[in-house]
Amino acid sequence: MKKHDQDFMKRQNRLTVFEIIKSQQPISRAAIAKQTGMSPTTVSRIVAELTEEGYLLETEQVSAGLGRKSTLLAMVDAAVLSVGVELDRHRIHIGIVDIQGNVVAKTDYARATDESVNATLERIGAEIDRLTKSNEIDCGRLIGIGVGLPGIVDNEKGVVVFSVQLGWKNVALAEKLKAITGYEVAIDNELKVKALAEHLKGAAIGSSRTAMLGFGNGVGSALIVDGEIDRGKTNSAGEIGHTTIDPNGMMCDCGKAGCLQTYINIHSLLSEANKIRPVRTIEELFEARRAGERWAVYLVDRALMYMAITINNVVCMHNPDTVIMSGELTDKFPEIYEEVAELCIKRFVWEPLRGTFAIRPSELSGQGVVIGSGLMSQNCFFALE
């Protein structure tokens, strides 16, 4: 076997052992060897490396039944920290994330929609510096930055290929942000990293096939199969918001007419609402609906219908065991979760697939992208080490 292939296998084995300990701690070396099929010698070597580097600790616990003591392994949560960034059209969220995905410090602030790439990244760098200093974070433990954002992302090259919401095209974000901060930077689509976080820490724990749907400033989806993100050829799998519903429909920000997201996203809902009367925020629109104003009831109910149709389409395409609803609409107005779920059951989900999947709200809500981005950065670090 060539040295390159041997090195790749060693890195993959190391990452596999690390992830098993992280998710199943405390756990013995023998249990890891049984799960992975690796030899006890290989497992012991990897464990010794991780322990020496300060990532693991050993505990003495009595094994069940026989009363014998066996050495179990656990993570040192604070041994490694990373920065998770959610970069959205109007707001930026930043968090310091430990090995278990706990957010130990966080901040968020408004972003102007016309803010330049350089201004956005300089501000992110400054906020990370301020956050670490104000919380007395040991920067020697920070191993990198993960960024989740809406749009098509080349995650291997660290390039934002196209983001309708941000108005960015072919932006070498990872390279630019590394030059500003000095840290290694990993980037990906926001729903993909959010789905990863839900799989590891949220509503998708135990699921082998999860579809994550995001309803907010845009509409998107992500699929996690056996713990791995389904990316497609160009990492654009899941861009369901730009599937065409009506070629003669409303214009989308992307330049096409009749995209699915024009019937659901916040910008389109407010644009339609302002044809009736001035409505500045999505909260005002929902207040008008609660007050029984017919135009507002129509707009929101139509959006909920298309959300249910989206779930049916994703279920028919991917046959998941779990569908998670997330995004600004479901975070701000949790009552719509029950309404959409009921529409799915009563009207829109294809009958042979009813009862084959669970519909759940996001458990991580506003922190999902930050957590997922931070964990993505850690995965890149441990895979390379």
Results as ranks from 00 to 15, higher is better:
Val47Thr: 14
Ala48Pro: 02
Ala48Trp: 06
Glu49Val: 03
Leu50Gly: 13
Leu50Glu: 11
Thr51Phe: 05
Glu52Thr: 12
Gly54Tyr: 13
Leu56Val: 07
Leu56Pro: 04
Leu57Met: 14
Thr59Arg: 07
Thr59Glu: 15
Glu60Pro: 05
Glu60Ile: 02
Glu60Cys: 01
Gln61Phe: 03
Ser63Val: 13
Ala64Pro: 01
Gly65Ile: 09
Gly65Trp: 00
Leu66Gly: 07
Gly67Lys: 00
Leu73Gly: 11
Leu73His: 11
Leu73Arg: 08
Ala74Val: 01
Val76Phe: 10
Ala78Asp: 11
Ala78Ile: 07
Val80Pro: 03
Val83Pro: 00
Val83His: 06
Val83Gln: 01
Val85Ala: 00
Glu86Asp: 15
Asp88Trp: 07
Arg89Trp: 09
His90Asp: 13
Arg91Cys: 00
Ile92Met: 08
Ile92Lys: 04
Asp98Phe: 02
Asp98Arg: 02
Asp98Lys: 08
Asp98Thr: 10
Ile99Glu: 01
Ile99Asp: 04
Gly101Ser: 00
Val103Ile: 14
Val104Phe: 04
Ala105Glu: 06
Ala105Leu: 09
Ala105Gly: 08
Lys106Gln: 11
Lys106Asn: 09
Asp108Asn: 15
Arg111Met: 10
Thr113Phe: 08
Glu115Thr: 12
Asn118Trp: 09
Ala119Asn: 09
Leu121Cys: 02
Arg123Gly: 05
Arg123Glu: 10
Arg123Met: 10
Ile124Thr: 03
Gly125Asn: 05
Ala126Pro: 01
Ala126Ile: 02
Ile128Glu: 04
Ile128Asn: 06
Asp129Pro: 00
Asp129Glu: 14
Thr132Lys: 11
Thr132Tyr: 10
Lys133Tyr: 06
Ser134Pro: 02
Glu136Cys: 08
Ile137Ser: 01
Cys139Thr: 15
Gly140His: 14
Arg141Gly: 04
Leu142Asn: 07
Leu142Lys: 00
Ile143Met: 09
Ile143Gly: 05
Leu149Phe: 06
Gly151His: 08
Asp154Tyr: 00
Asn155Phe: 12
Asn155Gly: 02
Asn155Glu: 10
Gly158Ile: 11
Val160Lys: 09
Phe162Val: 12
Ser163Val: 08
Val164Ile: 12
Gln165Met: 13
Gln165Phe: 01
Leu166Asn: 12
Leu166Lys: 11
Gly167Ile: 08
Gly167Glu: 12
Gly167Phe: 09
